[in-house]
């Protein structure tokens, strides 16, 4: 027993050394480099926007980190070195430390949609089907925007869904349908578009649906950060967002 214990602790020692080595990267100095935090639902859009920005602004580099809006706001409040943050919905920005905000503008809108596997084994045809007993419905956690929007939508539709899990962010929620584990997930329209053929979308009527207005917030006076935000709200940026299922203001 003791021998084993020591083996495990030396393995742990190795892991810590590795972890420290991996964490040793320092953020590149501001200037030509922009660090962007973006909501999980913006994954495909901001990967595309960052590539396009780097192509049209030679010498710049954009680093985007994705997560649930709630997590990202917390990271900024704890002093994460980011110049720009893009969030899923205005209410997600409320806990953000006001002192850190230099400018804020709405750049995209999104609505909820039901994602089902391509063969739709449970035969989900509308939001009213989601309260069927035995159905496996996955939603976002109540602390993140897509979870709050889903709760609001179900409340106005008068539907109590058979929820089996509340996931940390919208991409984790969608993945349960992609893996075939869940019969349906409530995600954003843009996620269904981005996922392509691997899921099918079932629209939620506008009367009960929740529209989220995505703010992009500048956290620094850095000119490259400003020009990245200008690029996102430009006609070209808006076209990219629309092609990935977002609305633009």
């Amino acid at each position: 027993m003791r021998r084993r214990g020591r083996g495990a602790s030396s393995a742990a020692y190795g892991l810590v050394v590795l972890a420290l080595a991996a964490c040793g990267t320092t953020p590149a100095p501001a200037g030509d480099h922009v660090t962007v935090l973006a909501a999980a639902s913006l994954t495909e859009a901001f990967e595309q926007l960052a590539t396009d920005f780097e192509a049209t602004h030679p010498g710049t580099s954009v680093e985007v980190s994705f997560g649930s809006s709630a997590t990202l706001v917390q990271q900024v409040n704890q002093g994460a070195p980011a110049e720009v943050i893009a969030l899923a919905g205005e209410s997600a920005a409320k806990p953000l430390d006001r002192a850190a905000v230099k400018a804020s503008t709405t750049f995209a809108t999104n609505v909820l949609e039901i994602a089902v596997p391509p063969d739709n084994p449970a035969g989900v045809a509308s939001i009213d089907d989601l309260d069927r007993p035995g159905l496996k419905v996955v939603l976002c956690a109540p602390s993140v925007p897509c979870g709050q929007a889903a709760d609001a939508t179900f409340a106005s539709a008068g539907v109590s869904p058979s929820v089996v899990s509340r996931e940390v962010d919208v991409k984790a929620t969608l993945s349960k349908v992609r893996l075939g584990e869940a019969d349906a997930a409530v995600v954003y329209h843009s996620d269904v578009v981005a996922a392509g053929d691997v899921v099918r979308g079932v629209a939620i009527p506008a009367a009960v649906n929740t529209t989220l207005r995505y703010p992009i917030i500048t956290l620094s006076d850095d000119p490259t950060a400003r020009s990245f935000v200008e690029f996102v709200v430009s006609d070209r940026g808006a076209a990219t967002l629309r092609s990935l299922g977002f609305g633009t203001p």
Binding site: V138, A141, V164, S165, R166, V168, K176
Partner: peptide, 11 residues
Amino acid sequence: LTFAGSYPGRT
């Protein structure tokens, strides 16, 4: 989290 998901009281 990956396998069982997260639902109060159940997982």
